[in-house]
Computed example of a mutant assay.
Amino acid sequence: MSITDTDIVGWNSKALDEILSNDAGRPVLFTNARILTTDPLIGTMTGADILFVGPLIVAVGPSLFSAADDDNAIVVDSTGMTIVPAVVDTVALADGRGHRSEYAATLTPGTTSDLLVVPDELAADVPSAVATLMSQPEQVRALVAAGKPVLWAGTDAPGRATAPEAGIPASPDLTGSPRVGVWIDQEDFLHQELTADGRYDETRGGRPHAYQGRYWIDGDRIDYLDDLGFWAVGEFRGDELHHVGYIMHLG
């Protein structure tokens, strides 16, 4: 069966409007789909439903539709569609994980509601569904990230998140930031100074200026671009800065 523009345009447009205006935490139910969970216990389900609330999948399986009215769920009729994880664990797909608990990015209760919806005929398996997203995005019915539509009916969803502009950003002005200062590890070996102009300067084992470069903070993540050209990363955890095995505190 061929796929026509008529099949795509207007696909569940009312449900999309409800999802975009969903400020009350209503559940969202994609119903009557073929679901490739990639979970080894659950496997593939046909004529099944997937229910999520915000960024979290709460149920997967048949007959969830019967409770949709009770829960005031937003219903997305997915007849003829296959749903796969939008974030694919390629190691799991290659049977490279020894325990179910090691699987990542499955469509199972408790995982993030990242899902891709494409027509059955374009989704013989997970790789072919993902290939559809890459080569024929106009055929994608829905791409959802943490419960928020990114693509819908082959086009960008209104208000979707946009990728950061490509290229290295300008150095930030971090005047007044509580994370500016000299961070020192527990052994007093590493001193990492973060300055308000977005530069860092490391002293290692008493050797000054061992590494110098620029840094950017995004939430609790810190990215470093050394003047030598390599990138590194760290993480703020409370009052600690974790970086390549070092745990530092402000001196």
Results as ranks from 00 to 15, higher is better:
105 A>Q: 01
42 I>E: 06
62 P>H: 03
179 R>N: 14
115 L>S: 13
50 I>E: 04
137 P>W: 08
62 P>T: 11
41 L>D: 11
175 T>S: 14
211 Y>S: 15
17 D>W: 03
197 D>P: 03
98 G>P: 06
57 I>E: 15
223 D>C: 09
192 Q>N: 13
237 R>N: 04
157 A>S: 08
109 P>I: 09
240 E>V: 12
220 D>F: 05
250 L>M: 12
1 M>F: 08
132 T>D: 09
41 L>W: 00
165 E>A: 12
210 A>T: 11
58 V>I: 10
211 Y>C: 07
92 A>L: 14
120 D>R: 14
95 D>E: 04
22 N>R: 06
217 I>T: 01
172 P>L: 03
100 R>D: 07
41 L>Y: 09
29 L>D: 03
173 D>L: 14
169 P>G: 04
190 L>P: 00
36 L>G: 02
117 V>N: 08
242 H>Q: 12
199 R>A: 12
24 A>N: 09
73 A>R: 09
184 I>F: 11
76 V>N: 02
14 K>F: 11
247 I>P: 00
45 M>G: 04
224 Y>L: 15
210 A>H: 05
167 G>W: 08
201 D>I: 03
111 T>L: 07
54 G>R: 13
52 F>P: 00
55 P>C: 00
104 A>G: 10
49 D>F: 04
60 V>L: 06
171 S>I: 04
128 S>C: 11
188 D>R: 15
35 I>D: 02
238 G>M: 00
250 L>I: 14
234 G>S: 12
90 T>M: 09
167 G>S: 04
239 D>Q: 14
41 L>M: 11
143 L>P: 01
98 G>T: 07
5 D>P: 01
244 V>H: 13
84 V>F: 01
76 V>S: 01
215 Y>T: 11
95 D>P: 02
205 G>R: 05
204 R>M: 15
227 D>M: 02
224 Y>H: 13
129 A>V: 03
96 G>S: 02
181 G>V: 14
131 A>M: 11
247 I>S: 10
2 S>E: 14
103 Y>P: 06
101 S>K: 11
15 A>H: 01
121 E>R: 07
246 Y>S: 15
248 M>C: 07
